[in-house]
Structures are given as structure tokens and as C-alpha cells.
């Protein structure tokens, strides 16, 4: 493409973002501010993730983009073609063939490796924002590791509903220090964050924050000793591939209220079907 730098962003911006990434990796789970750029996409379409990907991607990379686990949604397709056009890189839908994976709302089912990087799109990087409206105060709370109020929230959920009320974006403690939002992934995916061999990077474009979980870092979901974190999975098999342990989406299949459960990770589902065939 003419008139654009490789991967759209100019090299100065990329360097600025890489510096923020290095800082984020050095302080696992800590939100690092960065000068988020205007991207040719509206906020909410993954501008934070795209800027991270643009700063990291090289000509040899193989990019996979998923949205809610699927490679074929509008958002995933447009981000993938954006980088195919601006960087000329190869793209894939296969998790094991990708070197760089940008995602929204899911972590792939198959374990990632230490030669891969996963970039999460984050709408709200601050895990305390529902409890504490003031950014200045929540920054102080992070500095002092003052996370009692988050536990009070869990206490309330358990008292009212018998369990933690949210089933996605369940807060985690990274490296025994910082409270972190894992982005709106299902709680089912939280265990995959723990000691993942791949580098995990999180980008929030509108909120102008980058944070990271370096490879093999402890990531613990908030809970109580006697009410351990225990994400629930729909007790079904995937209707398409028969998988028993993957995360399922519930889909309405006709106008009579018929429903079906299928893998949300479309690549996993396709390869499972191929294997079973």
C-alpha cells in the first residue's frame, strides 16, 4: 500500500509503544499509560490491540485475529485484512501456525507456546473502576496494593447470589502484586492466563493503557479459601464437533426457540471435526 508506513503506524509511534510494552513487561499487571493514536477504526473496535500488533509485527510474522473465538466475524476479518494490506504479512486461522494472535473476549483452546505472543483488546483496563470512580484514587489503591474492596465485592456476590456474579472479566492478581482485568474473557479462560508460555499483552486504545503478563507468570483469580474460583461451563458437548471440554456459545438456531451449543473457538472446532472424521 502506498502512502503508509509498514503496518500503518510510523516508526516513532511504534518505538513509543514498544517502550511502554517493555515497561509493562517489567512490572507485570501494572497499567502503563501510552499516547494512543487515532486509528482508522472507531474505539471499541480494538484500537489498543491494533496499535500493539502494529508495533510488534514483522515481515515474517503470521497473524491470527479472533473475535469471541471466531476468525470469521466482521471485526476479525477487517483487522486481519488491515495488516495483510498495510504490512503484507501472512495471516492464518490456525492457532498453532500463528506467531502473533490478536484477540477479543477469548483465549484459544489449545495451549499457546513460548514463540507466540497474544494481544488482547481491552475496553476497560481498570479492574477497580466499578468500585472506585476516581482514577487518582484507584491508582493510589494499586500503589498501596489496597485491594480489600475487591474482596468485599466478592463477599457480597457470594452472600447475595451464592457465587461470584460475573462470569467474565473476573479480576486476577498478577505475580502476587497487581490486581488486573483479564479483559472480558469468560472466567472459563482465566486458568489459561496462569503461567502461560506465551507473552500476553493487553491494549486499551480509548483508555490509553498497556499492560502485560510475561511468560510463565503466576496469575491467580480472586477468590476465598473456602469458596475457590470455579468457573462454570455449559454441561454440553459441542453440537458440531462433539468436544466436551471447550468453551461453548449458545446459539438460537430457528424461530421456535431451538438452541444449540457449539465451540466458540472456531479453529479448535474445525480441527476437532477433522480429527474425529
Amino acid at each position: 500500500m502506498q502512502g503508509y508506513n509498514f503496518a500503518y503506524l510510523d516508526e516513532t509511534t511504534k518505538r513509543m509503544i514498544r517502550r511502554a510494552i517493555l515497561k509493562a513487561v517489567a512490572i507485570p499487571g501494572h497499567q502503563v499509560p501510552f499516547a494512543s493514536r487515532e486509528m482508522p477504526l472507531p474505539y471499541g473496535w480494538g484500537t489498543g490491540g491494533i496499535q500493539l500488533t502494529a508495533s510488534l509485527i514483522g515481515a515474517d510474522d503470521v497473524l491470527k485475529v479472533i473475535d469471541q473465538g471466531a476468525d470469521d466475524t466482521t471485526n476479525a476479518i477487517s483487522i486481519r485484512s488491515f495488516f495483510a494490506r498495510t504490512a503484507g504479512v501472512r495471516t492464518t486461522t490456525h492457532t498453532d501456525a500463528a506467531t502473533l494472535i490478536q484477540t477479543r473476549h477469548r483465549i484459544p483452546e489449545i495451549p499457546l507456546r513460548d514463540d507466540q505472543i497474544i494481544v488482547y483488546q481491552v475496553p476497560m483496563p481498570e479492574p477497580l473502576y466499578r468500585l472506585e470512580p476516581s482514577r487518582a484514587v484507584s491508582r493510589r489503591m494499586h500503589a498501596m496494593a489496597d485491594y480489600g474492596p475487591m474482596h468485599v465485592k466478592l463477599y457480597e456476590d457470594i452472600t447475595r447470589f451464592g457465587r461470584v456474579a460475573v462470569s467474565y472479566d473476573h479480576p486476577v492478581v498478577v505475580n502476587r502484586r497487581y490486581l488486573m482485568s483479564p479483559s472480558p474473557i469468560p472466567a472459563f479462560d482465566n486458568p489459561k492466563l496462569h503461567r502461560m508460555p506465551a507473552l500476553q499483552l493487553f491494549g486499551a486504545g480509548r483508555e490509553k493503557r498497556i499492560y502485560a503478563v510475561p511468560p510463565h507468570t503466576d496469575v491467580v483469580s480472586l477468590d476465598f479459601e473456602d469458596r475457590p474460583f470455579n468457573p462454570i461451563r455449559a454441561p454440553h458437548r459441542c453440537a458440531l464437533c462433539g468436544a466436551e471440554h471447550s468453551y461453548l456459545d449458545e446459539m438460537v438456531i430457528d424461530d421456535r426457540g431451538g438452541r444449540m451449543f457449539a465451540c466458540s473457538d472456531t479453529d479448535y472446532c474445525a480441527s476437532y471435526q477433522a480429527r474425529e472424521a
Partner: peptide, 22 residues
Amino acid sequence: ISAGGNIGARLMASGARNYDDI
């Protein structure tokens, strides 16, 4: 926050992590 949550807040802030004990 419930009365119990308010009383438990300082316990949780200083590290208590057992729901039934709190």
C-alpha cells in the same frame, strides 16, 4: 454493601480470605 460486608471490609483489607470466618 451489606452490614456483614461492611464489618468484614477491614478484615479483608488486612488479608482475611476465608468467607465463613469473615
